[in-house]
């Protein structure tokens, strides 16, 4: 039973953060594409803005790893 909850917890950690990242990137991506069409010089800012929400999924991954390692 413990294994089930641990696996579920790890899966939730990565799934929730992945969905959150995906949602944020979809909104940012659309806005950034529109901004780049008018001001191509904003490309560096664009890359940064798109990369920023990836922190969520990366930290989600780290939490998931920590949860799984907790088992062993």
């Amino acid at each position: 039973m413990d294994v089930l909850w641990i696996s579920l917890g790890a899966a939730l950690a990565i799934t929730g953060s992945a969905f959150a990242t995906a949602w944020a990137q979809s909104r940012i991506g659309a806005a950034v594409a529109a901004a780049l069409a008018e001001k191509p010089e904003l490309r560096t800012t664009a890359v940064l803005l798109v990369a920023i929400p990836e922190t969520m999924v990366i930290l989600g991954f780290v939490i998931a790893v920590l949860i799984v390692l907790q088992r062993g």
Partner: peptide
């Protein structure tokens, strides 16, 4: 500082 955890996450992946 915690943001540097991405180094481990990307490396492990």
């Amino acid at each position: 500082v915690l943001s540097y955890a991405r180094v481990m996450a990307l490396g492990t992946a």
